[in-house]
Protein backbone atom coordinates (compact mmCIF):
# COMPACT_ATOMS: atom_id res chain seq x y z
CA UNK A 1 0.00 0.00 0.00
CA UNK A 2 1.00 3.61 -0.33
CA UNK A 3 3.25 5.57 1.91
CA UNK A 4 1.25 6.35 5.03
CA UNK A 5 3.72 8.83 6.52
CA UNK A 6 3.16 11.47 3.85
CA UNK A 7 0.12 13.65 4.60
CA UNK A 8 -1.25 13.83 1.09
CA UNK A 9 -4.39 15.49 -0.19
CA UNK A 10 -7.16 12.87 -0.28
CA UNK A 11 -8.16 11.75 -3.75
CA UNK A 12 -11.81 12.00 -2.93
CA UNK A 13 -13.36 13.78 -0.04
CA UNK A 14 -16.98 14.25 0.92
CA UNK A 15 -18.12 16.72 3.52
CA UNK A 16 -21.46 16.60 5.31
CA UNK A 17 -23.49 14.95 2.58
CA UNK A 18 -27.19 15.09 3.22
CA UNK A 19 -29.76 13.38 1.05
CA UNK A 20 -33.47 13.07 1.60
CA UNK A 21 -35.51 10.67 -0.50
CA UNK A 22 -39.27 10.56 -0.17
CA UNK A 23 -39.20 12.33 3.18
CA UNK A 24 -36.59 9.99 4.66
CA UNK A 25 -33.14 11.24 5.48
CA UNK A 26 -31.14 8.55 3.71
CA UNK A 27 -27.83 10.28 4.25
CA UNK A 28 -27.40 12.23 7.42
CA UNK A 29 -24.32 14.40 7.26
CA UNK A 30 -21.87 11.82 6.03
CA UNK A 31 -18.23 12.78 5.57
CA UNK A 32 -15.34 10.72 4.35
CA UNK A 33 -11.92 11.12 2.80
CA UNK A 34 -9.86 8.55 1.01
CA UNK A 35 -6.18 8.70 0.13
CA UNK A 36 -4.45 7.35 -2.91
CA UNK A 37 -4.30 3.57 -3.08
CA UNK A 38 -6.59 3.07 -0.12
CA UNK A 39 -9.55 0.75 0.03
CA UNK A 40 -12.56 1.71 2.08
CA UNK A 41 -15.38 -0.74 2.63
CA UNK A 42 -18.92 0.27 3.50
CA UNK A 43 -20.88 -2.25 5.43
CA UNK A 44 -24.18 -2.18 7.19
CA UNK A 45 -27.74 -3.44 6.90
CA UNK A 46 -29.66 -2.83 3.70
CA UNK A 47 -31.33 0.55 3.75
CA UNK A 48 -28.41 1.99 5.70
CA UNK A 49 -27.60 4.36 2.84
CA UNK A 50 -24.50 2.67 1.40
CA UNK A 51 -25.76 2.67 -2.14
CA UNK A 52 -27.14 6.20 -1.83
CA UNK A 53 -23.79 7.38 -0.53
CA UNK A 54 -21.91 5.87 -3.46
CA UNK A 55 -24.34 7.35 -5.95
CA UNK A 56 -24.08 10.74 -4.28
CA UNK A 57 -20.31 10.59 -4.49
CA UNK A 58 -20.46 10.93 -8.26
CA UNK A 59 -23.70 12.92 -8.36
CA UNK A 60 -25.80 10.19 -9.94
CA UNK A 61 -28.01 11.17 -7.06
CA UNK A 62 -27.30 14.82 -6.36
CA UNK A 63 -26.90 15.34 -2.61
CA UNK A 64 -29.21 17.94 -1.05
CA UNK A 65 -26.25 19.60 0.57
CA UNK A 66 -22.59 18.98 1.27
CA UNK A 67 -19.41 19.18 -0.76
CA UNK A 68 -17.44 16.73 -2.78
CA UNK A 69 -13.78 17.34 -3.55
CA UNK A 70 -11.60 15.56 -6.04
CA UNK A 71 -7.93 15.95 -5.14
CA UNK A 72 -8.78 18.94 -3.01
CA UNK A 73 -10.84 20.74 -5.58
CA UNK A 74 -14.55 21.12 -4.98
CA UNK A 75 -16.82 19.91 -7.73
CA UNK A 76 -19.36 22.40 -8.93
CA UNK A 77 -22.35 20.21 -9.62
CA UNK A 78 -24.07 22.95 -11.55
CA UNK A 79 -21.44 22.87 -14.27
CA UNK A 80 -22.34 20.03 -16.59
CA UNK A 81 -18.90 20.02 -18.11
CA UNK A 82 -17.21 19.72 -14.78
CA UNK A 83 -19.63 17.01 -13.73
CA UNK A 84 -18.90 14.94 -16.82
CA UNK A 85 -15.16 15.26 -16.48
CA UNK A 86 -15.42 14.41 -12.78
CA UNK A 87 -17.40 11.28 -13.55
CA UNK A 88 -14.79 10.20 -16.07
CA UNK A 89 -12.29 10.15 -13.26
CA UNK A 90 -14.55 8.23 -10.92
CA UNK A 91 -15.33 4.71 -12.07
CA UNK A 92 -18.55 3.12 -10.91
CA UNK A 93 -19.58 -0.51 -10.67
CA UNK A 94 -23.24 -1.28 -10.12
CA UNK A 95 -24.89 -4.13 -8.34
CA UNK A 96 -26.90 -5.02 -11.45
CA UNK A 97 -24.04 -4.42 -13.92
CA UNK A 98 -25.96 -2.05 -16.19
CA UNK A 99 -24.15 -3.16 -19.28
CA UNK A 100 -25.57 -1.56 -22.39
CA UNK A 101 -27.65 -4.41 -23.71
CA UNK A 102 -27.42 -3.44 -27.34
CA UNK A 103 -23.64 -3.41 -27.43
CA UNK A 104 -21.19 -6.32 -27.38
CA UNK A 105 -18.73 -6.67 -24.52
CA UNK A 106 -16.04 -4.94 -26.56
CA UNK A 107 -18.37 -2.15 -27.62
CA UNK A 108 -19.49 -1.68 -24.05
CA UNK A 109 -15.92 -1.01 -23.01
CA UNK A 110 -15.17 1.07 -26.07
CA UNK A 111 -18.22 3.29 -26.31
CA UNK A 112 -17.24 5.82 -23.66
CA UNK A 113 -13.63 5.92 -24.86
CA UNK A 114 -14.88 7.03 -28.24
CA UNK A 115 -17.83 9.18 -27.25
CA UNK A 116 -16.54 10.72 -24.06
CA UNK A 117 -12.78 10.70 -24.48
CA UNK A 118 -12.93 11.20 -28.22
CA UNK A 119 -10.48 8.40 -28.93
CA UNK A 120 -10.22 6.99 -32.43
CA UNK A 121 -11.84 3.65 -33.10
CA UNK A 122 -8.57 1.75 -33.44
CA UNK A 123 -7.04 3.10 -30.26
CA UNK A 124 -10.26 2.61 -28.38
CA UNK A 125 -10.57 -0.96 -29.58
CA UNK A 126 -6.99 -1.71 -28.61
CA UNK A 127 -7.56 -0.29 -25.16
CA UNK A 128 -10.87 -2.11 -24.76
CA UNK A 129 -9.27 -5.42 -25.70
CA UNK A 130 -6.50 -4.82 -23.19
CA UNK A 131 -9.02 -4.13 -20.44
CA UNK A 132 -11.05 -7.19 -21.30
CA UNK A 133 -7.86 -9.22 -21.16
CA UNK A 134 -7.13 -7.79 -17.74
CA UNK A 135 -10.45 -9.13 -16.43
CA UNK A 136 -9.90 -12.41 -18.25
CA UNK A 137 -12.53 -11.96 -20.92
CA UNK A 138 -10.51 -11.39 -24.08
CA UNK A 139 -12.24 -14.34 -25.72
CA UNK A 140 -15.72 -13.01 -24.94
CA UNK A 141 -15.26 -9.62 -26.59
CA UNK A 142 -17.82 -10.17 -29.32
CA UNK A 143 -20.58 -11.55 -27.10
CA UNK A 144 -23.62 -9.53 -26.14
CA UNK A 145 -24.63 -9.07 -22.50
CA UNK A 146 -27.52 -11.50 -22.90
CA UNK A 147 -24.99 -14.22 -23.68
CA UNK A 148 -22.72 -13.57 -20.73
CA UNK A 149 -23.03 -15.01 -17.25
CA UNK A 150 -23.57 -12.64 -14.36
CA UNK A 151 -19.94 -12.88 -13.30
CA UNK A 152 -18.76 -12.15 -16.83
CA UNK A 153 -21.12 -9.21 -17.09
CA UNK A 154 -19.74 -7.71 -13.92
CA UNK A 155 -16.18 -8.20 -15.16
CA UNK A 156 -17.06 -6.42 -18.41
CA UNK A 157 -18.54 -3.62 -16.31
CA UNK A 158 -15.27 -3.41 -14.39
CA UNK A 159 -13.28 -3.34 -17.64
CA UNK A 160 -15.56 -0.60 -18.90
CA UNK A 161 -14.87 1.51 -15.83
CA UNK A 162 -11.11 0.78 -15.87
CA UNK A 163 -10.78 1.82 -19.49
CA UNK A 164 -11.53 5.37 -18.48
CA UNK A 165 -8.40 5.44 -16.26
CA UNK A 166 -10.35 6.40 -13.16
CA UNK A 167 -8.55 7.86 -10.17
CA UNK A 168 -10.94 6.02 -7.90
CA UNK A 169 -13.53 3.32 -8.24
CA UNK A 170 -16.88 3.14 -6.47
CA UNK A 171 -18.25 -0.39 -6.21
CA UNK A 172 -21.87 -0.81 -5.17
CA UNK A 173 -22.31 -4.36 -3.92
CA UNK A 174 -20.58 -5.76 -7.00
CA UNK A 175 -21.36 -9.38 -6.15
CA UNK A 176 -24.81 -9.16 -4.60
CA UNK A 177 -26.68 -10.01 -7.79
CA UNK A 178 -24.48 -12.99 -8.58
CA UNK A 179 -25.04 -16.68 -8.07
CA UNK A 180 -22.72 -17.97 -5.35
CA UNK A 181 -20.50 -19.91 -7.76
CA UNK A 182 -19.84 -16.78 -9.84
CA UNK A 183 -18.81 -14.52 -6.99
CA UNK A 184 -15.23 -15.77 -6.86
CA UNK A 185 -14.23 -14.66 -10.35
CA UNK A 186 -15.40 -11.11 -9.67
CA UNK A 187 -13.78 -10.95 -6.25
CA UNK A 188 -10.46 -12.06 -7.70
CA UNK A 189 -10.58 -9.23 -10.24
CA UNK A 190 -11.31 -6.79 -7.43
CA UNK A 191 -8.44 -8.21 -5.39
CA UNK A 192 -6.08 -7.72 -8.34
CA UNK A 193 -7.21 -4.13 -8.61
CA UNK A 194 -6.60 -3.44 -4.93
CA UNK A 195 -3.20 -5.03 -5.06
CA UNK A 196 -2.42 -2.98 -8.14
CA UNK A 197 -2.94 0.13 -6.05
CA UNK A 198 -6.42 1.19 -7.21
CA UNK A 199 -8.23 3.49 -4.83
CA UNK A 200 -11.64 2.04 -4.08
CA UNK A 201 -14.75 2.57 -2.04
CA UNK A 202 -16.85 -0.56 -1.97
CA UNK A 203 -20.17 -1.42 -0.43
CA UNK A 204 -20.41 -5.13 0.17
CA UNK A 205 -21.64 -7.92 2.36
CA UNK A 206 -18.53 -10.01 1.67
CA UNK A 207 -17.05 -9.29 5.07
CA UNK A 208 -14.18 -11.75 5.16
CA UNK A 209 -13.09 -10.94 1.64
CA UNK A 210 -13.14 -7.22 2.21
CA UNK A 211 -11.47 -7.50 5.60
CA UNK A 212 -8.44 -8.88 3.82
CA UNK A 213 -8.30 -5.91 1.44
CA UNK A 214 -9.65 -2.94 3.31
CA UNK A 215 -7.66 -0.23 4.99
CA UNK A 216 -10.78 0.98 6.65
CA UNK A 217 -14.26 -0.30 7.39
CA UNK A 218 -17.13 2.16 7.63
CA UNK A 219 -20.21 0.81 9.30
CA UNK A 220 -23.36 2.62 8.26
CA UNK A 221 -26.76 2.57 9.83
CA UNK A 222 -29.78 4.76 9.17
CA UNK A 223 -27.87 7.15 6.95
CA UNK A 224 -24.98 7.70 9.34
CA UNK A 225 -21.48 6.33 9.63
CA UNK A 226 -21.67 4.91 13.13
CA UNK A 227 -18.24 3.34 13.31
CA UNK A 228 -15.08 3.38 11.30
CA UNK A 229 -11.65 1.93 11.75
CA UNK A 230 -9.39 -0.80 10.51
CA UNK A 231 -11.00 -4.21 10.04
CA UNK A 232 -8.83 -5.61 12.81
CA UNK A 233 -10.02 -2.99 15.27
CA UNK A 234 -13.68 -3.30 14.47
CA UNK A 235 -13.85 -7.05 14.09
CA UNK A 236 -11.40 -7.85 16.86
CA UNK A 237 -12.50 -10.19 19.61
CA UNK A 238 -14.31 -8.35 22.36
CA UNK A 239 -14.27 -5.05 20.52
CA UNK A 240 -17.98 -4.83 21.30
CA UNK A 241 -18.42 -2.92 18.07
CA UNK A 242 -21.68 -2.67 16.14
CA UNK A 243 -19.73 -3.93 13.20
CA UNK A 244 -18.89 -7.11 14.95
CA UNK A 245 -22.47 -7.60 16.12
CA UNK A 246 -23.68 -7.11 12.55
CA UNK A 247 -21.12 -9.56 11.15
CA UNK A 248 -22.01 -12.14 13.75
CA UNK A 249 -25.65 -11.76 12.77
CA UNK A 250 -25.13 -12.21 9.05
CA UNK A 251 -22.82 -15.13 9.59
CA UNK A 252 -25.54 -16.83 11.66
CA UNK A 253 -28.12 -16.15 9.00
CA UNK A 254 -26.08 -17.35 6.08
CA UNK A 255 -25.39 -20.69 7.71
CA UNK A 256 -22.88 -22.68 5.72
CA UNK A 257 -21.40 -19.54 4.17
CA UNK A 258 -20.96 -18.40 7.73
CA UNK A 259 -17.62 -20.11 8.22
CA UNK A 260 -15.72 -17.52 6.28
CA UNK A 261 -17.67 -14.64 7.70
CA UNK A 262 -17.38 -15.80 11.27
CA UNK A 263 -13.70 -16.39 10.70
CA UNK A 264 -13.39 -12.85 9.52
CA UNK A 265 -15.24 -11.58 12.53
CA UNK A 266 -12.87 -13.37 14.83
CA UNK A 267 -9.93 -11.92 12.96
Amino acid sequence: MSDATKPAVPILEARNLIKTLGGNRVLDSVSLAIGRGKVKVLIGPSGAGKSTLLQCLNFLLPPDSGQILLEGREIDKKSKKELCSFRQQVGMIFQDFNLFDHLSALENVRVALMKVKGMGKLDATERAVAELKRVGLADKASLYPANLSGGQKQRVAIARALAMDPKIMLLDEPTSALDPELIGEVLSVIRDLAQGGMTMIMATHQISFSASLADEFMFMEKGRVVEHGSPAELLGKGSGSRTQAFCAKISELTGEAGDGEAGACRL
Binding site: L60, K80, S85, V90, F94, D101
Partner: peptide
Protein backbone atom coordinates in the same frame (compact mmCIF):
# COMPACT_ATOMS: atom_id res chain seq x y z
CA UNK B 1 -35.33 -0.01 -20.57
CA UNK B 2 -33.83 -0.58 -17.15
CA UNK B 3 -33.10 2.72 -15.40
CA UNK B 4 -29.51 1.64 -14.80
CA UNK B 5 -28.63 2.14 -18.46
CA UNK B 6 -28.78 5.91 -18.19
CA UNK B 7 -27.01 5.84 -14.84
CA UNK B 8 -24.18 3.72 -16.16
CA UNK B 9 -23.72 6.04 -19.15
CA UNK B 10 -23.63 9.06 -16.85
CA UNK B 11 -21.18 7.31 -14.57
CA UNK B 12 -18.85 7.00 -17.55
CA UNK B 13 -18.94 10.76 -17.95
CA UNK B 14 -21.35 10.94 -20.87
CA UNK B 15 -23.56 13.98 -21.10
CA UNK B 16 -27.29 13.25 -21.09
CA UNK B 17 -27.44 13.98 -24.80
CA UNK B 18 -24.63 11.52 -25.50
CA UNK B 19 -26.23 8.91 -23.27
CA UNK B 20 -29.59 9.21 -24.99
CA UNK B 21 -28.02 9.11 -28.44
CA UNK B 22 -25.59 6.25 -27.95
CA UNK B 23 -27.22 4.16 -25.27
CA UNK B 24 -30.95 4.79 -24.95
CA UNK B 25 -32.15 5.37 -28.51
CA UNK B 26 -30.32 2.47 -30.21
CA UNK B 27 -32.05 0.12 -27.81
CA UNK B 28 -35.41 1.87 -27.76
CA UNK B 29 -35.66 2.08 -31.54
CA UNK B 30 -35.08 -1.64 -31.88
Amino acid sequence: LPGGQLKAARALGMTDAQAIRTVILPQALR
